[in-house]
Amino acid sequence: MSMSKTILAAAALPLLALGGCASSFSANVSRFQQLPAPQGQTFHVQADDPRLSGGLEFSQYANLISAQLTRVGYRQAAEGERADLTVSVAYGVDKGRERIRSTPSTGFGRWGGGWGWGGWGGWGGYRPVITRHGRIAYVPGFYDPFMWGGWGWDNDVTSYTVYTSQLNMKIDRSADGKRLFEGKAQAISRNNDLPYLVPNLVEAMFTGFPGNSGETVKITVAPPPKG
């Protein structure tokens, strides 16, 4: 494999991981905790933003979190009952940012490489391309005058949008407000649909819950079974 192909293959790995595993969901999860062992303590889930309280969307996510807390040994407080633990939740997704992907084309490039943006043959240099949003981006040329007996190797360039989503969860002792747990699950994906993102972030948050305090781990959520 030529040096040009080696560089391109290495550069493509993160992009393949992002776009090729559409059936799975990966998130980085950070947790800090001083939670006592669950012994049936009661809890109440609330929105960190009061404007979300009572909303149908938040209620759906709160039910998912309640189910997870019940699974690990806590008990949801009955209506009107004072809960031992107060669970505050916030979630969201940003407006996205554009990324550029450059992949080798299968056809012949220009003869002999030529003078690129970084020098002869384009080694370490860049060339301008127009993205689908009409902006100018500079990508590696990778023109090698010694490849294929003097034929250059061009790149196909595409752009796409990625989004960062996040779920924050805090657990306080209701009696005195002492903080017992802080957790953050964050993911980068090409999907900005909260009804898809939040359930996956919740599952990532509760994988290995409550986790080792101060540790950040990468959690991969398997896709639901077919049917």
Score class of each variant (00 low, 15 high):
residue 2 S to D: 10
residue 2 S to P: 09
residue 2 S to I: 02
residue 9 A to P: 07
residue 9 A to G: 11
residue 10 A to C: 11
residue 12 A to N: 05
residue 15 L to Y: 09
residue 17 A to T: 14
residue 18 L to D: 03
residue 19 G to P: 00
residue 22 A to I: 10
residue 23 S to H: 13
residue 26 S to I: 11
residue 29 V to Y: 03
residue 29 V to I: 06
residue 31 R to V: 03
residue 32 F to C: 06
residue 37 A to E: 14
residue 40 G to T: 04
residue 45 V to E: 01
residue 46 Q to M: 10
residue 47 A to Q: 01
residue 51 R to K: 14
residue 55 G to S: 11
residue 63 N to V: 09
residue 68 Q to I: 08
residue 72 V to N: 10
residue 76 Q to E: 11
residue 76 Q to G: 08
residue 76 Q to R: 15
residue 77 A to L: 06
residue 79 E to N: 11
residue 80 G to P: 05
residue 82 R to Y: 03
residue 84 D to K: 02
residue 86 T to H: 14
residue 90 A to P: 01
residue 92 G to K: 07
residue 92 G to V: 07
residue 93 V to I: 11
residue 94 D to W: 12
residue 98 E to H: 13
residue 100 I to E: 02
residue 102 S to F: 13
residue 103 T to I: 12
residue 103 T to Q: 12
residue 103 T to W: 06
residue 103 T to H: 06
residue 110 R to G: 00
residue 111 W to R: 13
residue 111 W to F: 15
residue 112 G to N: 10
residue 113 G to W: 02
residue 116 G to E: 01
residue 118 G to Q: 01
residue 118 G to D: 01
residue 118 G to K: 10
residue 121 G to S: 09
residue 123 W to D: 02
residue 123 W to S: 04
residue 124 G to F: 15
residue 124 G to Y: 13
residue 129 V to D: 00
residue 129 V to M: 14
residue 130 I to D: 13
residue 132 R to F: 15
residue 135 R to V: 05
residue 135 R to Q: 08
residue 138 Y to T: 00
residue 140 P to H: 05
residue 140 P to C: 11
residue 140 P to E: 00
residue 141 G to L: 11
residue 144 D to H: 05
residue 145 P to R: 10
residue 145 P to Y: 10
residue 146 F to H: 06
residue 149 G to A: 12
residue 149 G to D: 09
residue 151 W to I: 06
residue 152 G to Q: 02
residue 153 W to C: 01
residue 156 D to S: 08
residue 156 D to E: 15
residue 157 V to K: 02
residue 158 T to D: 10
residue 158 T to L: 13
residue 162 V to R: 10
residue 162 V to W: 12
residue 163 Y to H: 08
residue 163 Y to N: 04
residue 165 S to A: 15
residue 167 L to I: 12
residue 169 M to W: 02
residue 171 I to R: 00
residue 177 G to T: 03
residue 179 R to Y: 07
residue 180 L to M: 06
residue 182 E to F: 10
residue 184 K to D: 01
residue 186 Q to E: 12
residue 189 S to G: 10
residue 193 D to A: 15
residue 195 P to R: 12
residue 195 P to V: 07
residue 196 Y to T: 14
residue 196 Y to A: 07
residue 198 V to R: 01
residue 200 N to R: 14
residue 201 L to C: 12
residue 206 F to W: 04
residue 206 F to V: 03
residue 207 T to Y: 07
residue 207 T to G: 01
residue 209 F to R: 07
residue 210 P to K: 08
residue 210 P to V: 15
residue 211 G to W: 04
residue 224 P to Q: 10
residue 225 P to I: 12
